[in-house]
Amino acid sequence: PDFTLHWNGITIHFKGIDEEQFRHLRELLDRGVSLEELEELAKELIK
Rank of each mutant, 00 (worst) to 15 (best):
N8W: 06
I10E: 09
H13I: 14
E20D: 11
N8G: 07
W7I: 11
L25Y: 02
D18F: 05
E40K: 09
E27D: 13
H24R: 12
E36M: 08
A42H: 09
H13T: 14
K47G: 15
S34D: 07
E36P: 06
T11N: 05
P1K: 14
L5T: 02
L5N: 00
L35I: 15
D18G: 08
V33Y: 12
F22L: 12
E39K: 11
T4C: 02
N8C: 04
A42C: 06
G9E: 05
N8T: 01
K15I: 15
L25S: 00
S34T: 14
L25V: 04
G32W: 06
I12K: 05
A42L: 15
D18A: 07
H13V: 13
E37P: 00
F3Q: 03
R26M: 14
G16F: 08
E19G: 09
K43C: 05
E36H: 10
K47S: 15
I46L: 14
P1G: 13
A42N: 01
E36F: 07
R23T: 11
K47E: 15
E27C: 15
K47Y: 14
K43V: 07
Q21P: 01
L38H: 00
I10N: 09
H6R: 07
E40W: 04
L35N: 04
E36D: 11
I17F: 06
K47L: 15
G32K: 02
E20Y: 13
E20I: 11
E40R: 08
H24S: 11
E20H: 14
D18Q: 08
D2W: 11
W7V: 11
F22N: 01
H6M: 10
S34I: 04
F22T: 03
T4D: 06
G16K: 03
F22S: 04
T4V: 13
H13Y: 10
I46N: 14
E36T: 08
L5Y: 04
R26Y: 11
L41R: 02
D2A: 10
D2G: 14
R23V: 11
G9A: 02
T4W: 10
F3T: 02
H24T: 15
Q21S: 14
L25R: 00
G16L: 05
E44F: 02
F3P: 01
I12P: 00
R31C: 02
D18L: 08
A42R: 04
F14M: 03
F14V: 04
I12Q: 01
F22G: 11
G16N: 08
E20S: 08
E36Y: 09
E20C: 06
D2E: 13
F14A: 00
F3I: 05
T4F: 13
F3M: 06
P1W: 15
T4H: 11
R26E: 10
I46S: 07
F3Y: 12
N8D: 10
V33W: 15
H24A: 14
F22Q: 06
E37M: 08
G9P: 00
I12R: 01
L41P: 00
E20M: 09
L25Q: 00
P1S: 13
K15T: 15
E37W: 06
G9L: 01
R23E: 13
S34N: 07
E40P: 00
L5H: 02
K15Q: 13
D30K: 08
L35W: 10
R31A: 13
E37C: 01
G16W: 06
E44M: 03
D30A: 10
I10D: 05
I46M: 09
E44V: 03
I17C: 00
E40M: 06
Q21L: 14
E27I: 05
L5C: 08
H24Y: 15
K43I: 10
L45F: 15
H24N: 10
D2T: 14
W7T: 05
D2I: 14
Q21V: 14
Q21H: 07
L28D: 01
V33K: 05
R23N: 14
L25A: 01
K15S: 15
L5V: 08
D30T: 09
W7G: 04
K43M: 10
L29E: 00
L28Y: 07
G9T: 02
E27N: 12
L35Y: 08
L28A: 15
I10T: 11
T4P: 01
E39S: 05
L28G: 03
D2M: 14
G32I: 09
H24F: 12
K15A: 13
D30W: 07
K47A: 15
T11G: 02
K47I: 15
R26A: 11
T11M: 09
R26F: 07
D30E: 12
L25I: 05
T11Y: 07
R31Q: 13
P1Q: 14
T4Q: 11
A42T: 02
F3C: 03
L29K: 03
E19C: 10
F22H: 04
G16C: 04
E44W: 02
I17T: 02
L41E: 04
L29P: 00
L5R: 00
L45G: 01
I12N: 01
A42Y: 15
I17V: 06
S34C: 01
H13N: 11
R26Q: 13
I46K: 02
F22I: 09
D30G: 12
L29W: 09
Q21F: 13
E36G: 08
S34W: 04
H13Q: 14
L45S: 06
I46G: 10
H13K: 09
D18T: 15
K15N: 13
D2S: 14
L45V: 06
G16I: 05
L28R: 03
R23D: 12
K15P: 13
H24V: 13
H6K: 10
D30Q: 10
I46Y: 06
G16Y: 07
L35C: 03
E19P: 08
K47M: 15
E40S: 06
E20N: 12
F22V: 08
L38Y: 01
G16M: 05
E44C: 02
A42K: 03
L28Q: 08
L35E: 02
K15G: 13
K43Y: 09
P1N: 12
E36V: 09
A42F: 15
L29M: 09
F3K: 04
D18H: 08
L25E: 00
I46E: 14
K15E: 14
F3V: 02
I17R: 01
R31N: 13
E44N: 03
H13E: 12
L38N: 00
G16V: 05
E20W: 09
I17D: 02
K43G: 07
R31L: 12
I10C: 06
I12S: 01
E27S: 11
H6A: 08
H13C: 12
L41C: 01
A42V: 15
E39D: 06
W7Q: 10
L38F: 10
L41G: 01
E37K: 08
R31E: 09
T4K: 10
E44H: 02
I46V: 08
R26T: 10
E19K: 09
